[in-house]
C-alpha cells in the first residue's frame, strides 16, 4: 500500500532514523492518544479524579496534572464548560515543564496561540507574576483569548506584536518560551491532513523565520534569563540548526541539558545533510513518537550568560 506521506518526507525520515524510520512512521500513522491537563487554577488533580470517577484516566508520567483519557466528547462536558480541564497534547506539556516558570516571574510566550502552554504556565505560577502571551495572527489570538478565558488566569496579557517589538521597546523577561511555528510533522498524529502541507520548501522557510524569532526572544531576556525553544518537528533545519545559529550570533548564549523525569528523549544531532553544528546542540532533546507514544517534538533550553 502506498504511504500517505510524500516521498521527500519518507526519504528524510530514513536519513534521520535509519532502520528505526519504519517504527517511527508506524507511530506517525497512529492516531494520537487523547490527553488533558487539569486546570489547577480551578480544581486540584485529586478533586478532579474524585469527580471524574467514571472516566478512565491514566496519569501522564512527566507531569503532575496531565492524564491520558479514553473518552469521547470531552468538550461537551460540564467540567470543560467550567474550565476544570483543558485538552492538551501530552508532549506539548513538556516545554513549560522544561522552562519551569516560577511564582512572580515575568515571562514572554512569544508565539502563544492557541494558548495551551500559556495556560499551563499560568497554573504553574499559581496566578502570580505575569505572562505576556504574544502572537501575530488575529484569528489565532481570538481562539487563544477564548481558551484562556476558560482557564481563568489573571496573570497574563495577550499582545499582538512582531517578535522584535519587545527588545525594541526595552522590555526584558526572566524567561521566554518560544514554541516556534514549524513545518509541523508532530501534528500529523493529531490531524493527518497536516501531512499534505508538509514540504522541503516549508522546512526551509520555517527555519528562516525561526532564526529571526530566536534572536528576538534571546535579546529580550534578562541577564541569566532562560529561554526554551521548541517545535513540533524533527527537522534538524528547524531544531539544532536554529540553536546553532543562535550560538554563533550571540556569544553570551549557552545551551543547558534538557532532562525530563519519566520521559525518554534522544540527544540533539550535530550533523545533517553535510552541515555540522556545535556539539552543544547535543544537549537538546528530540522526542520521538515511538519512545513515549506522543507527538514528535524538539525541546531545548538556552541561557543568557551575564
Amino acid at each position: 500500500m502506498k504511504s500517505a506521506f510524500k516521498d521527500s518526507f519518507l526519504k528524510r525520515a530514513e536519513e534521520l532514523m535509519g532502520k528505526e524510520s519504519k517504527e517511527y512512521l508506524s507511530y506517525v500513522e497512529k492516531p494520537l492518544r487523547k490527553s488533558i491537563r487539569v486546570n489547577t487554577l480551578k480544581i486540584s488533580p485529586d478533586d478532579f479524579i474524585k469527580r471524574m470517577k467514571n472516566w478512565k484516566l491514566e496519569k501522564i508520567r512527566w507531569t503532575d496534572c496531565g492524564y491520558f483519557v479514553d473518552e469521547k466528547g470531552l468538550g461537551n462536558t460540564l467540567e470543560h464548560f467550567l474550565g476544570y480541564f483543558y485538552v492538551q497534547g501530552a508532549s506539548s506539556m513538556i516545554p513549560p515543564i522544561v522552562l519551569n516558570p516560577e511564582k512572580n516571574e515575568i515571562i514572554l510566550d512569544m508565539c502563544a496561540a492557541p494558548g495551551s502552554k500559556t495556560g499551563q504556565m499560568a497554573a504553574m505560577m499559581e496566578n502570580t507574576g505575569l505572562i505576556v502571551a504574544n502572537d501575530v495572527r488575529l484569528d489565532r489570538i481570538k481562539a487563544m483569548s477564548t481558551n484562556l478565558q476558560r482557564i481563568g488566569a489573571i496573570n497574563l496579557i495577550i499582545t499582538r506584536n512582531d517578535g522584535m517589538a519587545f527588545h525594541r521597546r526595552g522590555i526584558t523577561f526572566d524567561k521566554v518560551l518560544l514554541d516556534a511555528p514549524c513545518s509541523g510533522e508532530g501534528m500529523f498524529r493529531k490531524d493527518y491532513k497536516v501531512a499534505k502541507y508538509w514540504s522541503e520548501h516549508l522546512v526551509k522557510d520555517s527555519s528562516s523565520i525561526q532564526k529571526s524569532l530566536i534572536l528576538a526572544g534571546f535579546d529580550c531576556l534578562k541577564e541569566n534569563g532562560q529561554m526554551v525553544y521548541s517545535t513540533c518537528t524533527l527537522s534538524p533545519e528547524e531544531d539544532e540548526e536554529v540553536i546553532d545559529f543562535l550560538l554563533r550570533k550571540r556569544e553570551n548564549s549557552a545551551v543547558e541539558k534538557v532532562k525530563i523525569t519519566g520521559f525518554k528523549t534522544r540527544s540533539g544531532i550535530s550533523e545533517w545533510r553535510g552541515k555540522s553544528y556545535s556539539d552543544e546542540v547535543k544537549k537538546c532533546a528530540r522526542i520521538y513518537p515511538q519512545d513515549n507514544d506522543t507527538e514528535a517534538f524538539f525541546v531545548s533550553k538556552v541561557v543568557k550568560k551575564a
Binding site: V132, I141, A165
Partner: peptide, 23 residues
C-alpha cells in the same frame, strides 16, 4: 477584566494589547 499587579513591572504603553487577564 482583572489582571495581576505585576503588569506594572513592565512598560506596556507601546504594546498592542488585545486582552488583559480574565473577563
Amino acid at each position: 477584566w482583572i489582571v495581576n499587579k505585576s503588569i506594572n513591572k513592565i512598560d506596556i504603553s507601546n504594546l498592542n494589547i488585545e486582552r488583559f487577564g480574565t473577563y
